[in-house]
């Protein structure tokens, strides 16, 4: 699985355990308020039960991320199921990607983009505030039922676009409130790891689609120029745009900027003079 910037939020430790083991995640002991596990490319947080906790945990792991445009955020967990019929008829252990979320208490709906090309059944998810039993006098729309989805989505959507957010739910019950065996929950999730990897790959492919003429290498070069010349944020923005003009207009690679990685700069004024020189050169290309 290629997983640049994959953020996974689970409610329960039992849901997280098979993922921690499969991806070789290590607990981040610098995080005290949240239970966070990481590898170089995956961050997993165990939020606890309920939409507020899920929103807090999601925010907690995404807030420190400087660049979220290539992140994918996934809520993974078990859910109840009510009245799924036809193509969506399901059994315990079936997994679904969520195409619509409905927050039962607020009445609000949320829609992740379903752009990823992965063979996976879809379903609607209703998020409720307390465990829901089929004997209760509450009716929810047909589909899946959990206690985290809407909180997770609202938080994730603060940082990411709807094409970067996915919810994958594994059916654990048909709305019978009972204490679930932790091992059993882990086994349910564990069986879905191959599909989860395929989903992550598909979402990663989407967020890594390139819409910029500047390559990663170009951006690194420009950052080196910025650091050496001590350019301001605004100057760096102008430099980057000039580089784009240069590449798009000329159809050629960027000119050699390497002298500006090392040129000695004694102050901001001198940096600005070099900046103007580079800009003129880029726009004259």
């Amino acid at each position: 699985m290629s997983s640049f910037g994959t953020y996974i939020v689970t409610a329960l430790q039992a849901e997280a355990r098979p993922l921690i083991s499969h991806f070789g995640l290590k607990q981040d002991t610098t995080c005290h308020a949240l239970r966070v596990y990481r590898s170089d490319r995956i961050t997993l947080v165990v939020s606890g039960t309920g939409k507020v906790k899920s929103a807090i945990a999601t925010t907690g792991v995404l807030q420190p991320v400087a660049e979220t445009s290539r992140a994918i955020v996934l809520n993974l967990g078990i859910s109840g199921a009510s009245n799924l019929k036809g193509d969506q008829a399901c059994e315990i252990g079936d997994g679904f990607l969520v195409n619509r979320l409905f927050d039962y208490s607020s009445g609000r709906s949320y829609y992740p983009d379903m752009l990823a090309r992965c063979e996976c059944p879809e379903a609607m998810l209703t998020t409720v505030d307390r465990p829901l039993d089929s004997k209760d006098d509450i009716s929810v729309p047909d589909g899946l039922v959990d206690m985290e989805g809407s909180g997770f989505f609202e938080a994730a959507a603060t940082f990411c676009g709807p094409h970067q957010i996915a919810l994958y739910k594994v059916v654990s019950d048909f709305l019978q409130v009972e204490k679930l065996d932790k091992e059993w929950v882990s086994d349910l999730i564990s069986a879905h790891i191959p599909r989860l990897e395929s989903i992550c790959d598909s979402y990663q492919a989407i967020v890594h689609e390139e819409y910029d003429v500047l390559s990663d290498e170009d951006r690194n070069l420009l950052r080196r120029v910025r650091d050496n010349l001590r350019l301001t944020v605004s100057q760096f923005k102008i430099l980057t745009e000039s580089a784009r003009f240069c590449k798009l207009e000329s159809g050629n690679p960027l000119p050699d900027l390497s002298p500006y990685f090392t040129v000695s700069v004694s102050g901001k004024h001198e940096g600005k003079q070099h900046f103007e020189r580079i800009r003129e050169r880029l726009l004259a290309s």
Binding site: S109, D113, A157, G161, E209
Partner: peptide, 22 residues
């Protein structure tokens, strides 16, 4: 797959959508 939407703007006008990706 059909997803029912109360008002088309609730899906069309979501923030942070990526036009070219869609």
């Amino acid at each position: 797959t059909v997803v029912s939407v109360a008002n088309y703007k609730s899906i069309f006008a979501r923030p942070r959508q990526h036009f070219q990706t869609q």
